[in-house]
Amino acid sequence: MPGWLIYFIIFGTIFGAFGGAAVLIWFERRLLGIWQDRLGPNRVGPLGIGLALADVIKLFAKEDWVPPFADKFVFVFAPTAIVMAMLLGFAVVPFAPGIHVIDLNIALLFFMGMTSLAVYSVMLGGLASNNKYALLGGLRSAAQMVSYEVFMGLSLMGVVMLTGSFSLVDIVNTQAEKGWFVFSQFFGFVAFMMAGIAESHRLPFDLPEAEHELVAGFHTEYSGMKFGMFMVGEYLGLILISSMICTIFFGGWLGPDFLPPIFWFTIKTFVFICFFILLRAAIPRPRYDQLMIFGWQYLLPLTLINLLVTGAVVLWL
């Protein structure tokens, strides 16, 4: 790979991820509107796509206020952590054969590490705000994300067993021979998807910011671009989880030959992003204890049994 190409891929990934996150501001509201039988934002520019730009200008122009009772150092640091961690997570995503920033032999674990670091953003944001609602949101996020990280890791181990490697490129190449893992690892896929929603604290699992009970949860005290960073981080997380589902369970760039591989990757990722938005429109938010009980009483046994059966199959077949 020539030297300039890798820089091209790195900057392409960063701008693609940020651009995707910005367009999602508009796209999500538009899709929600359609699914809820209304128009959604359609005034600015063609189909209302100028809304993304208007929103960015609004966020930059708003007063960026640090409350006097907040812990200033942590308050400013918190929103950057989620964006950094999520962007670093994109480093291991293989977009097409040869088009990836780095092919680590620990790529899957690297991704898990980055999502687990993203927790700090929400926790520290809630803690530094020195506000009761923010603190409750931070506490919830800590328990929720640490628990769902366990199921996320366990649900992926079946795929790792079948592949024999943590490398995402190897995982996609194995799927070319053995078929997509969504069929052989269906329960792993279900558990991973739920854990993915909980990790990126999207609706319906957005208990850290549940606005009907916690005002706005961990980002109650945030305004302007600091709040924008939390939003960008959330959208980056959504894109990252979708591309991971596509890579690990739906064959990544694999697809019929009439389109180049990178298009297949983009299309599949796009479908999952739409699916996550549909979930937001369709499913009500569970209560907090229901979320935790569901995780530990259903997802944990499910992933463990899946692991056991996969291990037995790999050993004896």
Partner: peptide, 11 residues
């Protein structure tokens, strides 16, 4: 360490 144990400390 960084992703789980320290999270509990912050908790």
């Amino acid at each position: 360490y960084a992703g789980a144990i320290m999270v509990l400390f912050v908790f």
